[in-house]
Design a protein around this nucleic acid. Structure first.
Lengths: 342, 342
DNA sequence: GGCAACATTGTTAGCGCTAACATTCGTCCC
DNA sequence: GGGACGAATGTTAGCGCTAACAATGTTGCC
């Protein structure tokens, strides 16, 4: 009896066993008031005996709520995005939501729109889009918003709620740190120029230089990967003007460290290097990398918070001032930066 | 008219606009034969005009298929697991399935079982569990299997379909590579001893040593993180017996390289070091790390393949010989290994 | 004691879809 | 020419649940 053969039990089976109507079972499950404690217990017992589990499709059909949040992610094989995704997942689960994830290889407006379409098939209630490029954020803002969207890492998105790290502040912090150590100016290996993270970090770097009245060299653009840092690092190694280098992420910084090392440039004695991200490996680079840490999971958490607010608020003036949640960056000083030589 | 106010359109709205019954609309949507081409076109047009989208809950309710696969993952902030997840996701989407992901902080039997329970609420059709520890796999096999489960990275799981990389083969490959370069024996920094990956790599290492008649030192256990590699590396640095070192992952290898460097031990001149995983950074370590590459996304792909086979096969003798899909590992030779000194 | 107010439970009607059966129509063949 | 067949479409009955309303008890208070 406790293991019904054939089909899995439905609410009516529980009701029969507990000697109540199926509606009373529903009430117990939904925590309605006005159910006698004793009835509740009987129903609970019947539920356990049968191993009953509510059918989510039937429930969603009538409540018009699926409890599923769609996530469009990129590049989850890298540290930052993967951490962010993990933060999103935990926050969503804590609030009883489910996550349906699509990860994209290419970061284009069209790919994002296809991914959102795919997720729409599953009746997601809203979207979290990890939107690291300007084009993506702009494409997002132009969409017919039949359900709420939150951008994560979306920089200064114009008309969209956004959760992100303060990239500009982080860039400022990094540059300031080097200037404070007496370097005349700071060179910059940036990320690709259509990424919002690159933009923000460049802006912070420029602001710090401007504030200090330091010369502003041309930034050199990499592609986030170690190899590009290596290439650009090799270029800079010969330049006697370079005494301090701000690299837009730790992976490129790793490449740069290697190139400098191979060229006989000592870090930090000859050149100071600072990275960005604080990946787990940075502490063990040669030399241990000074860098700027981002609290990725906090960003994920805030993204979910924004979205759930929209889902659960009685649709109102959300479009007037789209919410922004900015997480500060934090300097992690290690060995790769040192005061400028006299 | 094309933008209906109030509720979103349902099948009946499309039917009305196209001048057919709702069932005909359903037939068009499901690609049934025996619908006149012209009718099909009219229905399609109506669908587009209204921006109609099938209600997945209603559909799932009657078909008893949700098209959702539940994934239990750990540690997606690290390279391997994140890559695997990404492989799983792409393969699932290619077959029209959706993914619902739960990531866990702690790898315990209970956490896994709770995660599966959570996913069951959403009526997932089956599970992919990234199960890197023996206890987890065993707990999995003991569960009441009301829906199919595939383990990924589950080593030699007894009664469960598994997709994994050939860890033993990889360990053998790494050790063999060092022995072939004339090293008398190979020391090993292993992962935690309750991880299946550790076990497999240790087994391969032992086999290679045994085959060569080389002495078998005690393996030293780390925790996968760079810091533990650093700690153990510092220990080994003073030992003149150590001329070749197989480290169970690249992150620990990074720590070990740093410790050796600090102790004045030159790699590869004094000691050869080989890692495991081939993370994107390895190529730019000091020196560039020889390592064993795993095709994580292929593992994810195969996991999905196994699961979908089970979902779509008319439930038969699946339990007789649970399928195993083993992906070979591959040696990536770089600079950190060299022939033994005479 | 009777009646209002409330607590507790049951009954009914869908949510939007697909499967199964019913109907209509044209076509073919003896 | 009529019956048999199959193609094309329509009609009906749920899937398992919740919301709304209806029907009971049960209490308290004058």
């Amino acid at each position: 009896m406790s293991v019904p053969v054939g089909r899995s039990p439905v609410m009516a089976d529980v009701a029969r066993l507990a000697g109540v109507s199926h509606q009373t079972v529903s009430r117990v499950l939904n925590g309605h008031p006005n159910v006698r404690t004793e009835t509740q217990a009987r129903v609970q017992a019947a539920i356990e005996e049968l191993g009953y589990r509510r059918n989510s499709s039937a429930r969603a059909l009538v409540t018009r709520r699926t409890g599923v949040i769609g996530v469009v992610a990129f590049d989850t094989t890298h540290y930052g995005p993967a951490q962010t995704l993990s933060g999103i997942e935990h926050a969503a689960r804590a609030d009883g939501y489910f996550l349906s994830v699509v990860t994209l290889q290419t970061v284009t407006r069209q790919a994002v729109s296809e991914a959102m379409d795919y997720l729409a098939q599953q009746s997601v209630e809203g979207y979290i889009v990890i939107a690291p490029k300007r084009a993506v954020v702009e494409g997002l803002a132009g969409q017919p918003a039949d359900r709420p969207v939150v951008a994560v890492e979306g920089g200064e998105a114009p008309d969209l709620p956004v959760a992100c790290v303060d990239q500009e502040g982080g860039g400022y912090l990094a540059t300031r740190h080097l200037l404070d150590q007496g370097h005349r100016t700071v060179h910059h290996i940036a990320g690709p120029d259509d990424w919002l993270e690159s933009e923000g970090r460049i802006a912070g770097w420029r602001r710090a230089l401007a504030e200090a009245g330091a010369p502003v060299p041309e930034p050199l653009y990499g592609d986030w990967r170690p190899r590009s840092g290596y290439r650009i690092g090799a270029q800079l190694a010969g330049d006697p003007d370079v005494s301090a280098l701000f690299v837009a992420n730790d992976q490129m910084a790793l490449g740069a460290l290697r190139a400098l090392g191979e060229a006989g440039v000592r870090v930090p004695d000859d050149v100071s290097v600072i990275g960005f991200d604080d990946i787990p490996e940075s502490e063990f680079f040669t030399p241990p990398l000074t860098t700027v840490a981002q609290d990725f999971s906090e960003v994920g958490r805030r993204g979910i918070e924004l979205l759930i607010d929209m889902l659960e608020a009685p649709a109102e003036s959300t479009s007037l001032h789209p919410a922004r949640s900015v997480v500060p960056a934090r300097l992690v000083a290690r060995v790769s930066t040192a005061p400028a030589r006299a």
